[in-house]
């Protein structure tokens, strides 16, 4: 029990504490590509602090709107508790990969319902897009994780990690990992897939009426997703040798996630935003193809 609580606190502190830094790194990368100086690395922390203290402007929207940010960040933190960060996932006894997928979707639910509740047409368009992004991207994540599950014979994360580390690299897992990587860009809402927010088109979409602490929570949730999905990718789809010493695994994990942050940041900087229909066809054609190929390889044992 004490171990569970300790791990849980560790996960939450690391995810919440480091997520803005990852965002800061991405902003810096963007600035480098732009030939700019760019903001300091801690700028996202400052942004969040500023937003937390700012006045919260509330449209007459009721409870669903009010609960949105809390539910969104809560669900993301819950997903964080199911995430292995080199350490075993603290809540491994409470949920497996499917539960993880659904808690991530729950964060989307909070965004979408909050968007609908705000009563702004832009929020409706944005929430509608968010929903479409969820069902073009989540299946890819699901297929990739199911591939890993088929390889491991189990849907729980610790089993998957152990079995992959033991079995070594395989074709199917490479496919699944690539699919997961391609979906990662959309999961963290970066270009070319920041379609739901699209500030030049629909002015942050579902967040258009958000301000102050509510917006801060949504931002934190979106930053945290980068670390969560990055860690899943590193832990599940990279056959890492385990040192057995958790601080070492933890550092290795975050080092690799750092590499992912740079990759995501670069892709983010050199792409225009796709349209929602283009992104859907992108995911349905290319990514699903890659993911299903992984699944097929997995079921023939490769």
């Amino acid at each position: 029990m004490a171990q569970v609580i300790g791990l849980a606190v560790l996960n939450l502190v690391l995810i919440v504490g480091l997520a803005p830094l990852a965002e800061g790194v991405m902003r810096r990368i963007r600035a480098i590509v732009h030939s700019r100086k760019g903001p300091p690395l801690i700028q996202p922390y400052l942004d969040i602090m500023k937003l937390l203290a700012k006045e919260d402007l509330v449209p007459e929207a009721g409870m669903v709107w009010q609960i949105g940010p809390t539910l969104c960040l809560g669900a993301v933190l819950m997903a964080a508790l199911l995430t292995p960060l080199g350490t075993p996932p603290p809540l491994a006894f409470a949920g497996d990969a499917i539960v993880f997928i659904y808690f991530v979707a729950l964060a989307g639910v909070a965004i979408i319902l909050g968007g609908f509740a705000s009563g702004n047409p832009y929020a409706y368009v944005g929430a509608s897009r968010e929903m479409m992004m969820i069902f073009s991207v989540e299946p890819v994540v699901a297929i990739a994780l199911v591939t890993a599950a088929v390889k491991a014979g189990s849907l729980s994360f610790p089993e998957m990690m152990e079995s992959y580390a033991a079995a070594g690299p395989s074709v199917s897992m490479v496919f699944a990992g690539v699919a997961f990587l391609l979906a990662l860009q959309a999961q963290v809402g970066k270009l070319p897939f920041d379609i739901a927010e699209a500030d030049q088109e629909i002015m942050e979409g579902p967040f258009i009426e958000r301000s102050g602490p509510g917006l801060a929570l949504f931002k934190m949730a979106s930053y945290a997703k980068m670390l969560i999905f990055g860690s899943i990718l590193v832990q599940i789809f990279v056959p890492l040798p385990r040192s057995g010493l958790w601080p070492v695994d933890l550092v290795v994990n975050f080092a690799l996630v750092g590499v992912l942050v740079v990759v995501v940041g670069l892709v983010n900087a050199v792409n225009p935003r796709l349209r929602i229909d283009q992104s859907m066809s992108y995911f349905s054609r290319i990514v699903v193809f890659v993911a299903v190929a992984g699944l097929v390889f997995a079921s023939i044992g490769a």
């Binding site: 963007r30 590509v33 732009h34 030939s35 700019r36 270009l191 070319p192 920041d194 699209a198 500030d199 030049q200 900087a269 050199v270 792409n271 225009p272 935003r273």
Partner: peptide, 8 residues
């Protein structure tokens, strides 16, 4: 188009 690199 959200392609700020082109802008910059």
């Amino acid at each position: 188009l959200g392609f700020d690199t082109v802008l910059m």
